[in-house]
Simulated assay, not measured.
Amino acid sequence: MSSEQMEPGTVRPGGRTARVRSSVLRAAGDALVEHGFDRLDLADVARRADVGKTTVYRRWGTTAGLVTDLLADMAEQSLPRTDTGSLIEDLRANARLVVKTLTDPRQGALFKSVIAAATCDERTAEALHRFYATRIGEWAGCVDQAVERGELPAGTDAAEVIRAVSAPLYYRLLASGDPLDGAAADRAAEAAAAAARAGAYIA
């Protein structure tokens, strides 16, 4: 199977191909922020990226394929998790990173568009699930270390703890409209830590 026939996001190209991918994904993100998934158009993305339409259609094929690769790239570019040696400080760092991302004018709007698209497009939903699985898997390490240090009971489900940190923050973004700030981040981290210490997340 040639690289251009492979699933978007599975190739680690170099040189001009990498530059084209970067330009197209940036353009796709801009278009999503401006217009949303419903109005995402491959020809418009090609124009924004200053590349040929045939290149975009051949490599990504569909808007869902393009968003899939965009999410893969976002996972690749995400900051590594913090390792402070303290569960609560690690969870606070995680929560503050979530808030920083969701309140960023571009990133926040981009996530809203992708989440909205995932509700009606199965391929986008799968890509979004993979993105979050990657991020949760990385941050789950701080919970596993807390178990090893004796901060949390044995058998604590690390992924569930990380989900508990971010869930109320996404609720504020998508449902309630309540402020997303440092206080909300710290509250989410502290609540998840307290529940984990009490054994709420023992598998």
Rank of each mutant, 00 (worst) to 15 (best):
I136E: 07
S166N: 12
A158N: 09
A31K: 15
A28N: 07
W139S: 12
G29D: 04
E34S: 14
E126G: 10
P13T: 14
E160H: 12
L91Y: 04
H35Q: 15
R39V: 10
G15Y: 06
Y201F: 01
E126P: 07
D30K: 14
E7G: 01
Q77W: 15
D157H: 15
R21M: 11
I136K: 01
A146F: 07
D90L: 02
I202L: 14
E122L: 12
M1G: 13
L128W: 07
V51M: 02
Y132R: 13
T10H: 07
A109G: 03
R123K: 11
V20L: 08
K53H: 04
R59C: 09
T156V: 09
T124L: 06
L40I: 10
R149A: 06
M6P: 01
L32P: 02
A43D: 05
A167K: 09
L70P: 00
G29C: 13
S78T: 06
G36M: 14
T17N: 04
S78Y: 13
A28P: 06
D90Q: 06
L91N: 01
Q145E: 15
P8E: 09
E7L: 11
D181Y: 13
M1T: 15
R187F: 08
E7C: 09
L32G: 08
Y57A: 14
E122S: 08
A192Y: 07
L66G: 10
E34N: 13
A194Y: 01
V11W: 06
D90F: 05
A164T: 00
A27W: 10
A93K: 04
Y171D: 14
R16A: 10
D121G: 09
E76W: 07
D83H: 10
V98Q: 00
L110I: 01
T55W: 02
G85V: 01
V11H: 02
E34Y: 08
G177F: 11
Q145A: 15
E7H: 08
V99Y: 04
A164Q: 10
H129A: 11
T103Q: 03
A203D: 10
L128I: 11
R130D: 13
K112Y: 03
A146W: 00
A194I: 00
D38E: 09
R149Q: 05
Y170Q: 12
A140F: 01
L66T: 10
T10A: 13
R47E: 03
L97I: 00
D186G: 14
F111G: 03
R197K: 05
I88P: 00
V98K: 00
A200T: 08
A167G: 02
A28D: 10
Y170N: 13
K100D: 02
P105V: 07
R135H: 11
M6K: 09
G36C: 14
W60Y: 15
A194H: 08
R92N: 08
A193E: 07
